[in-house]
């Protein structure tokens, strides 16, 4: 695996795509199955998976069911909900946004969009 961040992302991808909770071993097997096709990566240790899982649990992305042996893990929130949260922040529609992110183009009013379209008329277009 390239880095801890990439491993966290790969694990979240598996959890997001799996409806039921998974043990660390089952998760490792799915990771191996998902990555073996594309690249020949070295064997991933279950302890590494456990380490990353507890990091993700601390960050609030993963919940752990301690009632079962081995512990079962699942994603707290779906990928779509996380993306929506992120996009609210980016689009400035989140209520408590402190620093507006410097977006390439901010929010444009319908009137301004109209003006922009007229301006584009004067520019040779590659988008017919």
């Amino acid at each position: 695996m390239a880095s801890l961040g990439e491993l966290e992302r790969a694990i979240m991808d598996v959890l997001w795509d799996t409806p039921q909770a998974l043990s660390a071993t089952a998760l490792r097997d799915r990771l191996a199955a998902a990555t073996a096709v594309t690249t020949a990566r070295k064997e991933l240790a279950t302890t590494t998976v456990l380490t990353v899982l507890s990091r993700l649990e601390n960050k609030g992305f993963v919940s752990r069911d301690r009632g079962l042996r081995p512990h079962q893990y699942r994603a707290v929130t779906s990928r779509a909900e996380h993306t929506a949260e992120l996009m609210h922040e980016v689009l400035g529609t989140a209520p408590d946004r402190e620093a507006a992110l410097a977006r390439f183009i901010g929010n444009v009013s319908p009137q301004e969009a109209q003006t922009l379209r007229q301006l584009l008329g004067g520019i040779p277009s590659q988008h017919a």
């Binding site: 689009l91 529609t93 183009i105 929010n107 009013s109 319908p110 301004e112 969009a113 301006l119």
Partner: peptide, 29 residues
């Protein structure tokens, strides 16, 4: 550059995928 600015600026307007951009109040711009 001008094309990029105008294309992105007008993409939120009717005709384009607006789900995320639609419910903005006047205060937002």
């Amino acid at each position: 550059l001008a094309r990029a600015i105008v294309l992105v600026g007008t993409a939120g307007d009717p005709g384009a995928p607006t789900d995320a951009l639609a419910p903005l109040s006047e205060a937002a711009h």
